[in-house]
Design a protein around this nucleic acid. Structure first.
Lengths: 337, 337
DNA sequence: CCATGGGTTTACATCGATGTAAACCCACCG
DNA sequence: CGGTGGGTTTACATCGATGTAAACCCATGG
């Protein structure tokens, strides 16, 4: 098993200089057809592939971008990752996936740490990161934020209109006659995270309907998994009076809540409605199927990759972009007739 | 915003040679305490971090390993990825995640292609790859296979005992009086894939109980998602006589089947039992909750990373390892009293 | 007081690819 | 027939870190 061929080997085989091989590889235009063909043949013959480390060292680019998400076993992020990878692939880039676990220092690591070294840029879905953390970026590593705008607005951003989406979902529940709508995973204060924005949208809907806002109906969760949704649902059912609808800020919470309500013998949508966010595949197959806000994941992926690549090519040209992706409310059994 | 500092800058700041800085970074033992401290301080002061491309170029290692799985939105792989990442992290390595989409050429790409360049080794969960594909490996890139043993046995491997696991699951159904057990996602022929092995285990259980094997009860699926399970369940319910249990080769299939059975008005576990494989989180919250074979994902991750790192350190020392990880059958509502 | 030897530090070459700038080659023009 | 200019190819230096081997320094012992 011979050692891996280097550009020099190809050059010798083809009878040209290493630089000419490099020119062929990089599609430099002033290479004669004859030489190009000869080099291509040598590349084939030897099974040559560029050594990325060498290239990166020389030109400072890797052709890789990092996608940093909180957790891959939150289905939304796995599905999003799939789209981002497909899109990056289409545009000749490779995606390095990074899980932050929603831990601040690991989100920072995605920007400054080991992974960042290999990447030409980062698409970050922040959970605990503060806007000012982004400001400290020492290296000019291009970043695109997902989900929420950074307060300073100094960074490219892609996301849906969370306020509007939550308002629409709430209005849907109100139109069905629900009046005591709890928000599972909501946040009343703190920075403009997705949770906060969605809670704001919920409040707007209540106001629009002339209904009072009851802070007690907004419940925090530790994480956004089934178990947290189940726990929240159990707690909420002990309230008096009980809520008649749950607006869950992601599908996992909603699905966990559905299960808990089933155990408690509460019928959905008979006694309560349940709505989620994300439209993960599981939501189309649960019992009952889940009404949910479906963000256009493909659009988000496309826009994020496009923004990032543009930023990589021209770091300081354009002002920070802010792409608002589409979404739609998909009404299913959990809040349907 | 100054350019990123290089090892040379640190050296100058600390008043030593670049090589000494390198020695400190790499914990070379013969460095005096004084120098070490001075260098550390310089590193802090300048915010220096090694440039991986330079290091890789020089020493041929990146400290990264690739985990190549079919699809991240199959929850089992997402959960597994989480464990692998945690384990790699613990051992000072970073994971590059690669989705193959179960396409042969993309599985090959994980071994030969772009990603491989950056990796010191690959943990591959193959779906369509043939054993001989592995033989062609030109470069000595270390590989650990997940899930199924390569026929030639020339490669390190980690997985559960699929035959036994399927036999146990089937025996469980038999012990509950089920007699017409369908296998959703099974395979009768072809290479020793996970599907084939599990189907074999199912047959063993039937034989052990002195029951006839009915090929028609083994149904293929296009993929291992909810929708495929739902489709298979619908088709199976049109049979006459109908099956009285479904052994689904992963949880997604089983969950999809549960939904379809619900729509058809078939009660689980009243009329039918349903069992899955993988023990993904969703299975603990479905209605009904799902009986499933739970592989010890953490053990799999640990063993795979350990084998791979060992192989990276000493490519040809040990004979190929074959770690059989534990599993257990978790009985829940879908086949419970 | 010099030789010996171990621990410490350094100069230099090197990994592979590519930017720079110069050399080269040939057709065309005066 | 020499000069000009464009396309083509090449020599060389360089990116950042580290292996090699030699230099250096100091303590110990003859």
């Amino acid at each position: 098993m011979a050692a891996r061929p280097r550009i020099k080997d190809v050059a010798e085989y083809a009878g040209v200089s290493p630089k000419t091989v490099s020119n062929v590889i990089n599609n430099f235009e002033h290479v004669s057809e004859r030489t190009r063909a000869a080099v291509q043949e040598a590349i084939e013959a030897l099974g040559y592939r560029v050594n990325i480390a060498g290239r990166q060292l020389r030109q400072g680019r890797t052709g890789m971008i990092t996608l940093a998400v909180p957790e891959l076993d939150v289905a939304y992020f796995a599905e999003l990752a799939k789209h981002v990878m497909a899109e990056a692939d289409r545009r000749g880039h490779t995606v390095l996936l990074h899980q932050t676990g929603a831990v601040r220092e690991r989100e920072l690591a995605a920007l400054h740490g080991f992974d960042a070294q290999f990447s030409d840029g980062v698409i970050l879905s922040p959970l605990s990161l503060q806007p000012r953390d982004l400001a400290v970026r020492d290296r000019g590593l291009p970043v695109v934020l997902l989900g929420e705008r950074s307060a300073e607005g100094g960074t490219d951003h892609v996301g849906i209109d969370n306020v509007r989406a939550a308002r629409e979902a709430t209005e849907h529940l109100l139109s069905r006659g629900r009046r005591r709508i709890a928000v599972v995973g909501g946040a009343l204060h703190g920075r403009q995270g997705t949770d906060r924005l969605r809670t704001d949208g919920y409040r707007e809907a209540l106001e629009g309907a002339g209904l009072p806002f009851e802070p007690g109906l907004v419940v925090r969760v530790d994480a956004y998994h089934w178990r947290d949704g189940a726990r929240a649902a159990v707690a909420l059912m002990e309230r008096d009076p009980r809520p008649d609808a749950l607006l869950c800020l992601n599908d996992h919470l909603a699905l966990g809540a559905l299960r808990a309500l089933h155990e408690l013998g509460r019928s959905v949508p008979g006694e309560l409605d349940v709505v989620g966010f994300d439209d993960i595949e599981a939501s189309r197959f649960s019992v009952p199927t889940l009404t949910t806000v479906a963000p256009d994941k493909q659009e988000i992926a496309r826009a994020a990759v496009a923004q990032l690549l543009a930023r990589i090519d021209a770091p300081d040209t354009a002002p920070p972009g802010d792409h608002v992706a589409g979404h739609r409310l998909i009404v299913r059994e959990s809040s349907g007739s």
